[in-house]
């Protein structure tokens, strides 16, 4: 289980996704829904793209300017969301939000996103760690 990750492993995962965010690009094909998100208290200024087919997220990517936490959290979210149904994605987002606010959460579905478990130590950065997730939520909740 990811919950057994050491601090050093969690750091490495965050740094990997912020220095090499594989989902940070504009979509190449058609059929994507886009949501723009920006932060009042950080540099974060992102476009999130989701492609949904037959009740399933078939692709997720993003583009924009972001701090380490928003960059890596959004990149990890894109990885995790690809292939999930809308219902599964919404449940994962909900559990992630619970984790952010130190509420009980289902760690089974968060996978690598567990690395952001300490975000509440830096409350000013919760917005950064959730910006991509909130964007995806705003697309998916109306589906």
């Amino acid at each position: 289980m990811p919950i057994s990750l050491t601090n050093e492993m969690m750091r490495a995962i965050i740094m990997d996704h912020s220095s090499n965010p594989t989902n940070k690009h504009t979509p190449s094909g058609e059929g994507y829904q886009k949501v723009h998100m920006h932060s009042d208290n950080c540099i974060d200024d992102l476009d999130i793209y989701l492609k949904i087919e037959n009740d399933r997220v078939v692709d997720a990517c993003f583009e924009g300017i972001a701090c380490t936490i928003s960059l890596s959290s959004t990149d990890i979210m894109c990885d995790l969301m690809k292939g999930k149904t809308i219902q599964e994605s919404l449940y994962m987002i909900e559990q992630y939000q619970h984790m952010m606010h130190e509420e009980p959460f289902d760690d089974e579905v968060l996978d690598e996103a567990i690395v952001f478990i300490n975000t509440s130590k830096q409350a000013a950065r919760i917005r950064c760690a959730t910006i991509g997730w909130n964007a995806a939520n705003s697309i998916l909740k109306d589906k």
């Binding site: 540099i43 830096q122 000013a124 950064c128």
Partner: peptide, 12 residues
């Protein structure tokens, strides 16, 4: 280092 990341480190 992104400015916000440095500010967060200083906050800590």
């Amino acid at each position: 280092v992104f400015a916000q990341d440095e500010a967060t480190l200083l906050n800590s």
